[in-house]
């Protein structure tokens, strides 16, 4: 388990992280979400042992990453840029990773290269931006590390490669005994795969949410009435949008009373809609977090 305990970090006299606590369980996907500048990348860089925390501690399987850096055999950090790999050829990087990670699986690595139609030779710098991003993920998962930290893995990529990458992460997690921590400001991407969400707001953990639990806590419904949305219903629910007489509401699953009120008001349209993570954030955080 990765445990982040009371981590704070100041850079250039600015407090980037303030007393951050959370943990990452085995076999889960944890999404770290927050606006640009919320401290997501700094947090991942501290977990990876790149930055020293100003205070607090990071442990992986109860070992401190700074005092026992060997424990990072189980932690691979994939930054948002692949610059560090650009001078290597595929053969060189395989040899290099084999030397670093005792559990590097060369067979799996080449299988994945074949699956994604990569050449098995040549320099990484000649790959396109999307290919480089996918390649660094392949490399990271081939290490068989227990924890993979991904910093904005789909940032700046086109839709097709983005889909490929997200699918690859989801498959790798389901097939292998690995936990993934993904930092992103794209809620729509995370909701499809994350089990656990850590919301960072101004350097603090604003909330920690379990996806399954969360989705069962709310209902999203689209309603329309003869007149305007009755005030007593408006007061008891979260209005996500209003277009003419059609309103989209978010209500708690347990709130039978509000559901009864809606039925009693005899809506001309009543439809249950699929719930998205964004809806929940709007409800819980008043839309403060969302960055498109």
């Amino acid at each position: 388990m990765i445990r982040v305990s009371g981590v704070s970090k100041s850079i250039h006299k600015n407090r980037i992280l303030k007393n951050v606590h959370f943990s990452v369980r085995s076999g889960t996907i944890t999404g770290v979400v927050g606006r640009n500048g919320a401290g997501k990348t700094t947090l991942l860089r501290i977990i990876a042992g790149i930055l020293y925390p100003s205070s607090g501690e990071i442990t992986v399987n109860d070992q401190n990453v700074f005092k026992q850096p060997d424990v990072k055999q189980n932690v691979v950090f994939v930054p948002d840029s692949t610059d560090a790999l650009r001078t290597y050829s595929i053969k060189e990087i395989v040899k290099f990773y084999e030397e670093i990670y005792d559990t590097f699986d060369q067979e799996y690595f080449y299988q994945l290269l074949e699956k994604f139609k990569f050449t098995k030779q040549g320099k990484i710098k000649y790959f396109s931006k999307g290919q480089k991003a996918l390649f660094s993920l392949i490399l990271a998962f081939s290490t068989n590390a227990k924890y993979v930290l991904l910093d904005e893995p789909t940032d700046g990529l086109d839709v097709i490669i983005k889909k490929q990458i997200l699918q690859f992460i989801a498959e790798a997690v389901s097939e292998r005994d690995v936990s993934v921590v993904i930092s992103s400001h794209r809620l729509d991407e995370l909701e499809k795969m994350a089990d656990h969400i850590v919301v960072l707001k101004q350097g603090k953990v604003d909330s920690e949410l379990e996806m399954e639990e969360l989705k069962s806590q709310y209902h999203k419904i689209q309603v329309a009435f003869e007149g305007k949305l009755p005030q007593h219903i408006r007061d008891r629910s979260e209005v996500l949008s209003e277009t003419g007489r059609v309103s989209v509401l978010l209500i708690s699953s347990k709130d039978e009373e509000t559901k009864k009120m809606i039925e009693d008001a005899e809506p001309i349209l009543y439809e249950e809609l699929p719930l998205s993570l964004e809806d929940i954030f709007v409800a819980k955080l008043g839309g403060d977090l969302y960055v498109s």
């Binding site: 055999q73 610059d83 560090a84």
Partner: peptide, 14 residues
């Protein structure tokens, strides 16, 4: 000057 520093520091070496 490059991301190689982050890459290095993230490796399992002291």
């Amino acid at each position: 000057n490059t991301k190689r520093h982050d890459f290095m520091m993230a490796l399992p070496f002291s």
